[in-house]
Design a protein around this nucleic acid. Structure first.
Length: 1011
RNA sequence: GCUCGGGUGGUGGAACUGGUAUACACGCAGGACUUAAAAUCCUGUGGGCAUAAAAGCCCGUACGGGUUCGAUUCCCGUCCCGAGCACCA
């Protein structure tokens, strides 16, 4: 019979909750350990089996650290602002707060059943006004700060204002310059916007019409929105942004200081994208304008044959000659209206237009035609490039397409790729090695040296200077959405002003609908009294200043993006009992003492999908708060582990639609096109015929397709069947489908039940064999598996062990429960070590009685125990939890074999197991007579002397092939070992009478004889 | 295209800094207990050759080379899978 996990787990979960066992103290003499999980977005599908993977790992480490005498902070909360709740609100009219609350309750219930040692008194929710008050507060700090390049850190904007006014500096107003002290309030505000770390500007944004909002770069994948997959366009609009680019260098350099996975660091490096080069100015004859370009290859300057501007560049309209105006306007119009997706998908398509204008080559004085091309990005560098077709593939393609001249200026090294010529017309060579030619003062120099020389020359002649450019863009911070933190800004006479700190939080107003207004304003515009007055705040009664005069004004209508709240939440957890703190006692985002005690996260576990989003922003905010002296650390987390994704197994039914066609063969090729796209091998017509008759592919509108071959496959649509309707052999039974169709109209409409060619099982039930596919686990794919059933059927301890046993934490793997019985079996076997059958029943019987002996342990028993202590300790330190589970199994198998039920062995073993399977461990600990929770028991100390053997079975190899073992004393010297081995009977056999050439003896490892 | 991971039995996966490849578990096969089933326990299980049986031999960590007494591990080349970036000048 199985051990009574149900009762045990309930009992101890209640005990921990009642005794607040895992409440972390901020005043402690113990060393601190902060283990953090990326908090979840509470989605409507509930917690699936992938979520706990990381939580279990961090929980094991947390519990282990407690046993090791650390004061452990292991908190949990919710990233509860976000799009899905809002989309749901739009559909149903329900306030997103309501669904969010419900989802959180469900998550909590599920988490509680897994037995995590979270300190729930520190729970945070980003959508809680008590929390987002401080998110808004940090925003105000960003607004009121600028980045001082001289001190290389953020400083108060007040310092800059002071500087401007005391020096009466000249500042730029549009294209004009003006003295600071002569500027109007509005002009001053505009100037400062170029410095503030949170600023408002006209910016090209990723606009997603379907979602009605702008998206950050990392929220756009392949030209469509990450959430929902809707098309994204480029649009110029006023936007709040954060000046993360000011931190680009530090974000890049400090990666060296943290122990994060190489892949995350690499992603961040790519994303920040530092490149070193030079700026260079090209004069335009008879014009007040000039073109500045950025290049990483100033050494190729003598190969420049044209200049290309981005279509969005301001210079375009100014430089275009009258006779080219029409063509240029048309091209610009075309380029701007190409969606981001089109632009990215046909990268190979070369488009462009000549402006009619020319620039002067700064070294040769030659006339260079100025072109526009949409391969030049407006947002990078200066939005203009110098075209060096011989040594840049894009310039090459452009020059080829428009018949522009190509001049080779670098001779590739001889051993480089065979056809990488760089010769005029042939192909281009973009390697950063070789010798310069046709390059005046650079001739004969190696590329590297040429770069140095030309930069100093450029600088000497005042043509430009050496420069570092980053790919990273400022982060767009406003969202035209309801369910996010309101941005604490109001507009007085058109000037953005901050809300006073004492009026925070600026709470989300009630609105009648969660949609944009008829005039296209964000949902917050629907709020009746969305005005601010510095004397009265926002609330009762709102004093309206209005936009046109008086004090106060309309509040900002956009809200913050999803990542705002998560950029600093690790700090909020540091506050003792933060969940129950009263607003009037809440004096800081986190109090100084707490911050100085906990400092930073020691272990952070979460998904790799946040590599360039959350994980970059949280580093940015950390550095900013550090600069302001608010926190003592420059990085949020010392160690980061990315847990692998647990994928789901989707069940797919393909709907093939056939239509009439003229040609016979097309059905085969159409079908094969689809199968190849899926990675399946193509089918011959016979194969397809066979598949159809087997029922595999046969979900079609025209079943008789092979009798009447004049059909072709016009579409193939995969339909996700909810996995709970499918049996473990991928079979969808007809009655199940009917049941599903009754419940969900979608399946009624999309699946033609009477067109399916059903197969029959042994008893005659009709079924159809579905295709399975490993995909991300998600609600929309209908493949979500929750941990609930496993907790119910096997218990939380089994779930915890099984998730760890699945493989290395960082590896992604599809969920399957094939091996769960092994883990469950292990726990039962472990339980039985402590039990003896009371009535002499058979094989463990039903009447188990707790029975542990106080006898002295034997040597083999001690050896097993200490070997396991060492293994578990090493494994946890290396986050290798799958191998620990194996070690526990081996240990239990050995002790069962030894029939060991001795307290001296089992008691330490229970402590050892407790981080992994805390419920069963608490129960056994209690049965062993302890009154306190096992959570703070001392971790057993490894004693090497118990594991040392005096002899070792040496594997003896001949020419590297292992043949047999010899048991030899470990006290022997290598020479003695050699002698023993050579004297051994079997050795003679393998020597076949020959003399050994050489004998290698590695003590305690191996003996190898070379013949 | 560039960068970073990774390829081990039927399956998930072990193997410390080069030293007995396939631990542990699943699955499968056989057996014990049982009226029977479940549960539990035991035995076997990389492939091939060979044998009455035992011993024994050969091949095997994606593929081809190399270094080494010895390579899953290190080096070079190729193929495949996954992830990130992708007209970033």
């Amino acid at each position: 019979m199985a051990y009574p996990f149900g009762d045990i787990e309930k009992k101890w979960q209640e005990y921990w909750s009642e005794h607040k066992t895992f409440r972390a103290e901020n005043n402690s003499a113990k060393p601190k350990f902060y283990a953090l999980d990326m908090f979840p977005y509470p989605s409507g599908a509930g917690l699936h089996v992938g979520h706990p993977l990381g939580y279990i790992a961090s929980d094991i480490v947390s519990r282990y650290k407690r046993l090791k005498g650390f004061n452990v902070l292991h908190p949990m909360g919710y990233d509860s602002f976000g799009l899905p709740a809002e989309q749901y609100a739009i559909q149903t009219g329900q306030h997103p707060e309501k669904t969010t609350k419900e989802n959180i309750a469900r998550y909590r219930e599920q988490m509680d059943k897994i037995g995590f040692s979270f300190d729930w008194t520190r729970e945070v929710q980003t959508s809680d006004p008590n929390y987002y008050k401080w998110t808004q507060w940090i925003f105000l700090k960003l607004f009121n700060s600028w980045y001082n390049p001289e001190t290389d850190k953020a400083e108060l904007i007040q310092n800059l204002i002071q500087k401007f006014s005391s020096q009466n500096s000249k500042v730029k107003i549009g294209e004009a310059e003006k003295f600071w002290n002569e500027c109007s309030e509005k002009e001053k505000s505009d100037v400062l916007m170029n410095y503030r770390l949170a600023y408002l500007s006209e910016a090209w944004v990723n606009w997603c019409p379907q979602l009605g909002t702008v998206l950050a770069n990392e929220e756009v994948k392949d030209g469509v929105s990450e959430r929902g997959g809707y098309p994204v366009e480029r649009k110029l609009m006023p936007q709040w942004s954060l000046r993360i680019t000011a931190y680009a260098n530090r974000l890049l350099n400090d990666l060296e200081k943290i122990d994060w996975s190489e892949s995350i660091k690499e992603s961040q490096r790519n994303w920040i994208g530092r490149s070193e080069g030079s700026s260079l100015k090209f004069q335009i004859p008879d014009s007040k304008f000039q073109i500045e370009v950025f290049t990483t290859r100033p050494d190729t300057v003598f190969g420049v044959t044209f200049i290309t501007l981005a279509p969005e560049s301001e210079l375009v309209s100014r430089l275009t000659t009258p006779e080219n105006k029409k063509a240029v306007d048309e091209y610009v119009h075309y380029a701007k209206n190409r969606s981001e997706r089109e632009r990215q998908s046909d990268v190979k398509k070369v488009t462009g237009q000549f402006t009619g204008a020319y620039a002067i080559h700064p070294f040769t004085g030659e006339k260079l035609p100025i072109w526009i091309g949409d391969y030049v990005l407006a947002g990078y560098g200066t939005g203009a490039v110098m075209g060096v077709p011989a040594h840049d593939t894009r310039d090459f393609a452009f020059a080829k397409h428009f018949g522009l001249p190509i001049i080779q200026v670098v001779q590739p090294p001889v051993n480089s790729s065979p056809n990488g010529g760089g010769q005029e017309g042939a192909s281009c060579f973009d390697g950063k090695e070789g010798k310069c030619l046709n390059s005046d003062l650079l001739n004969g120099l190696e590329v590297k040296d040429a770069i140095k020389k030309i930069i100093s020359e450029i600088e000497k002649r005042g043509l430009g200077k050496g420069k570092t450019q980053f790919r990273l863009r400022d982060a767009i911070f406003g969202r035209q959405r309801y369910w996010g933190e309101p941005i604490p800004i109001y507009y007085e006479k058109g000037i953005p002003k901050v809300i006073e700190e004492k009026h925070l939080p600026l709470e989300l107003p009630q609105v009648d609908k969660y949609l944009p207004t008829e005039t296209g304003e964000p949902p917050l515009a629907r709020a009746a009294d969305w005005y601010y007055h510095p004397n009265g705040g926002v609330t009762s009664p709102p004093l309206r200043g209005g936009d046109r005069g008086g004090v106060g004004g309309a509040l900002e209508l956009t809200t913050m993006p999803g990542w705002a709240g998560s950029s600093w939440y690790y700090l909020r957890y540091m506050v003792q009992d933060v969940k129950h703190i009263k607003p009037e006692d809440d004096k800081a985002f986190a109090d100084k003492n707490s911050i100085n005690y906990w400092r930073d996260v020691d272990l952070y576990i979460g998904g790799a999908e946040h590599a360039t989003g959350h994980l970059l922003y949280v580093r940015f905010w950390t550095k900013f708060l550090f600069d302001l002296g608010l926190i003592p650390v420059i990085e949020p987390a010392k160690k980061l582990i990315n847990q692998g994704m647990i994928q789901g197994r989707s069940m797919l039914l393909f709907r093939y639609i056939f239509v009439e066609a003229e040609k016979k063969s097309s059905i085969v090729s159409d079908l094969n096109k689809h199968l190849e796209a899926q990675g399946d091998s193509p089918y011959s017509p016979d194969d397809i015929r066979a598949e159809f008759s087997n029922g595999h592919l046969c979900h079609v509108n025209a079943i008789h397709v092979f009798e009447n071959v004049n059909y072709r496959c016009s579409s193939v649509t995969p339909i996700h069947i909810p996995i709970e309707y499918v049996d473990d052999k991928n079979r969808l039974f007809r009655n199940k489908l009917l049941e599903l169709q009754k419940r969900e109209a979608f399946y009624k409409e999309s699946v033609y039940e009477n067109k399916i060619s059903w197969s029959k099982d042994e008893v005659g039930n009709e079924f159809f064999l579905l295709t399975d596919e490993v995909e991300k686990m998600s609600k929309s794919k209908r493949n979500v598996v929750t941990p609930d059933d496993i907790c119910k059927n096997f218990g939380a301890d089994t779930l915890r062990l099984y998730e760890m046993f699945l493989g290395p934490l960082e590896q992604s793997k599809p969920w399957n429960t094939n091996g769960i019985s092994g883990v469950f079996g292990f726990l039962n076997k472990f339980w039985r070590l402590f039990m003896s059958p009371s009535g002499g029943g058979q094989g463990g019987g039903q009447d188990e009685r707790f029975s542990v002996s106080n006898e002295e342990p034997t040597k083999p028993e001690l050896k097993t125990l200490h070997k396991t202590i060492k293994k578990i300790q090493d494994d946890i330190e290396h986050y290798s939890f799958n191998t620990s589970v194996s070690a526990f199994m081996i240990c239990t198998n050995e002790l069962t074999e030894l029939k060991c039920n001795k307290r001296a062995i089992l008691e330490p073993l229970v402590i050892l197991l407790s981080p992994f399977a805390p419920h069963i461990a608490e129960e056994l600990w209690n049965k062993l007579g302890h009154k306190e929770s096992i959570s703070f028991a001392p971790f057993p100390v490894y004693n090497e002397s118990h594991t040392i053997d005096d002899s070792y079975a040496y594997p003896v190899s001949f020419n590297g092939k292992m043949r047999f073992n010899i048991e030899l004393s470990l006290s022997l010297t290598p020479a003695e070992i050699e002698k023993e081995v050579l004297a051994f009977d079997q050795t003679k056999k393998y020597l076949e009478g020959k003399q050994p050439k050489k004998v290698i003896v590695v003590p305690k490892k191996i003996v190898n004889i070379v013949v």
